[in-house]
């Protein structure tokens, strides 16, 4: 039934209508924990992106070989394998950035969003669609992380990607650890408000 989905639809679903952070509210831990700068957001986003895409493609490739009774263990093993690979690669080639992300790279293994996409999409669809679905979801997470990181870095330390743009530090509060909750909560409310606003507008027009 979903065969008719185009690449664009698959992508936009991950980034907008089913954004893993703001809409599905899954994988919130890093969104609150290490989103203090745009760079952290990008790094973890990229890591999740690769794990999601690789896992989706792997499961989709072998979907006929997976015994239905051991479906979930197989997913877990696949994700754990790719997380290990990404973890090793990051530790080897980007030691500085890796040290900043700490334990969160390893914790990608417990992200509900990845298992969910494997269960709901990759085990049923062909490799190409699974790939684009993985790309969409991975990008959705990346975009979410970058947006939160942007807000916190700009308001907290007055910089973007380490470059001083404001020249002063508006509110130190935003890079304090607990501000992650407030920023995510306020942004969720903001997106809800936009949605309601547009629905009302459309309702008036029709």
């Amino acid at each position: 039934m979903t065969n008719t989905k185009s690449i664009g639809q698959l992508l936009s679903r991950g980034i907008l209508s089913e954004n893993p952070i703001f809409k599905l509210a899954l994988s919130m831990c890093p969104a609150v924990g290490i989103s203090t700068t745009v760079m952290n957001g990008v790094m973890l986003g990229v890591a999740v992106f690769f794990v999601q895409v690789f896992s989706s493609v792997t499961i989709s490739l072998f979907k006929d070989q997976i015994h239905p009774r051991i479906r979930i263990p197989t997913y877990t093993l696949t994700i754990a394998t790719w997380v290990t690979v990404i973890d090793l690669v990051l530790a080897a080639y980007m030691p500085g950035a890796y040290a900043k992300m700490g334990i969160f790279v390893k914790l990608i293994v417990a992200f509900a969003i990845i298992t969910m996409r494997l269960e709901m999409f990759a085990c049923k669809e062909n490799v190409k669609d699974s790939f684009w679905d993985g790309v969409g979801m991975g990008l959705g997470f990346l975009v979410g992380m970058v947006v939160i990181g942007f807000v916190r870095e700009l308001l907290g330390s007055g910089t973007i990607l380490g470059y001083d743009v404001l020249g002063f530090k508006p509110l130190l509060f935003f890079i304090l650890p607990c501000a992650g909750f407030f920023v995510v909560g306020l942004m969720m409310a903001f997106f809800n408000w936009i949605e309601v606003f547009y629905k009302q507008k459309r309702g008036v027009r029709s």
Binding site: P177, C178, A179, F181, A189, V196
Partner: peptide, 23 residues
């Protein structure tokens, strides 16, 4: 609660306040 804050958004704000208290 304002309608756009209902559910998760307000829960996040409350959690943030707890986090501040735990500091």
């Amino acid at each position: 609660i304002p309608s756009s804050f209902k559910g998760l958004p307000i829960a996040f704000i409350v959690a943030g306040q707890f986090a501040m208290a735990f500091l």
